[in-house]
Amino acid sequence: TLFEALYDYEARTEDDLSFHKGEKFQILNSSEGDWWEVRSLTTGETGYIPSPYLAPV
């Protein structure tokens, strides 16, 4: 399942991933609570992002 960003987000740590509203992601790991490890389909980068900022496509 692909997810889309509902809002912009600016990374706060080196493990976070900055992204823009509308960017699409592949979920790599969603078992860590509200922070999911994802791969951006736009940039190819991986990192953690807050799951409340995402919605299924």
Rank of each mutant, 00 (worst) to 15 (best):
W35Q: 07
Y53S: 11
E45W: 08
G33C: 12
P50K: 13
P52L: 15
L2C: 09
V38W: 00
V57Q: 06
T13L: 10
K21M: 07
I49W: 00
G47Q: 03
E10Y: 10
S51L: 06
L28A: 02
E10H: 11
W35S: 07
L6K: 08
G47Y: 05
Y7C: 14
E14A: 13
E45R: 14
R12A: 12
E4T: 08
D16V: 15
D8S: 08
N29R: 07
L41E: 07
Q26H: 10
R39Y: 08
Y48D: 01
Q26L: 14
S40Y: 03
I27E: 01
P56V: 08
K24D: 00
D16S: 15
E4I: 14
W36N: 01
L6P: 02
E14Q: 12
D8I: 01
W36A: 02
N29W: 06
A5K: 00
F25G: 00
G47H: 06
P52H: 15
V57R: 01
P50T: 05
K21L: 05
S51G: 11
I27A: 04
K24R: 14
D34T: 11
T13H: 14
S40H: 07
G44V: 00
L41T: 07
E14P: 13
P50H: 14
L28T: 04
P50W: 15
G44S: 05
D15S: 14
E14S: 13
K24F: 11
E32N: 15
S40Q: 05
Y48W: 15
L17C: 04
L54M: 07
D16M: 14
P52R: 15
Y7D: 08
D15R: 15
E37Q: 13
L6C: 08
L6E: 04
G47F: 05
L6Y: 04
T13M: 12
T13G: 15
Y7A: 10
Y7T: 08
L2F: 10
A11T: 05
W36T: 04
T1A: 12
K21R: 10
Y53R: 06
I27W: 06
F25S: 00
H20W: 07
Y9Q: 03
I49A: 14
K24V: 14
F3H: 06
A5S: 06
L2T: 09
L41K: 03
I49S: 02
S18H: 08
P56I: 08
R12E: 12
T13E: 09
W36F: 07
L6H: 04
V38R: 00
Y48V: 08
S40G: 02
R39M: 11
F19K: 00
R12M: 13
F19S: 02
W36P: 00
L17N: 02
P56T: 06
T1E: 13
T43H: 03
E45N: 12
S18A: 07
T1L: 14
K21H: 05
S51E: 05
S51N: 10
G44W: 06
E14L: 12
A11L: 02
K21V: 09
T13W: 14
V57G: 05
S31G: 11
F3Q: 03
H20F: 12
G33H: 11
S31Q: 11
F25L: 05
P50A: 09
T13S: 12
V38T: 01
S51F: 11
Y53V: 09
I49V: 15
A5W: 01
P56G: 06
A11Y: 03
S30L: 09
L41M: 12
P56R: 05
E10S: 10
T43L: 01
L41W: 04
K24N: 05
S31N: 11
L6G: 03
D8H: 06
F25A: 00
W36K: 02
R39P: 00
L17H: 03
E32P: 08
I49T: 03
T43K: 03
R12S: 12
E32T: 12
D16Q: 15
P56D: 06
V57N: 04
P52M: 15
Y48S: 05
E32F: 12
D8F: 03
T46V: 14
V38N: 00
S30T: 12
Y48G: 02
W36M: 05
L41C: 14
Y53K: 08
W35M: 12
R39F: 07
Y9P: 01
H20E: 08
A55E: 10
L54Q: 03
G33T: 13
L2A: 05
L17D: 00
S31L: 10
E45Q: 14
H20Q: 12
I27Q: 03
L28W: 02
G22Q: 01
F19A: 10
G22P: 00
E37F: 15
L41Q: 06
K21S: 06
E14M: 10
P52I: 15
A11E: 02
P56E: 11
W36V: 09
S30W: 12
T42K: 13
Q26E: 14
E32L: 14
F19V: 07
R39I: 11
E37K: 12
Y48R: 14
K24T: 09
T13Q: 11
L54K: 03
W36Q: 02
D34Y: 15
S40E: 01
Y53M: 14
D8K: 03
S30C: 14
V38D: 00
F3S: 02
L54C: 05
F25W: 01
E37S: 06
D34H: 10
S31Y: 09
S30H: 09
E10D: 10
W35F: 10
K24A: 06
R39S: 04
T46S: 09
E37C: 13
N29G: 10
E14G: 13
E37L: 15
L41V: 09
E37H: 14
A5M: 03
S51K: 11
Y9L: 04
T13K: 14
D34W: 14
R39N: 02
S31A: 11
D16C: 14
F25T: 00
E32R: 15
R12F: 09
V38Q: 01
Q26I: 15
A11P: 06
H20G: 07
I49Y: 00
S51A: 14
R12Y: 09
Y7I: 11
E45S: 09
P56H: 06
K24S: 05
Q26C: 13
T13I: 07
G47S: 02
E37T: 07
D16E: 15
K24I: 15
P50M: 10
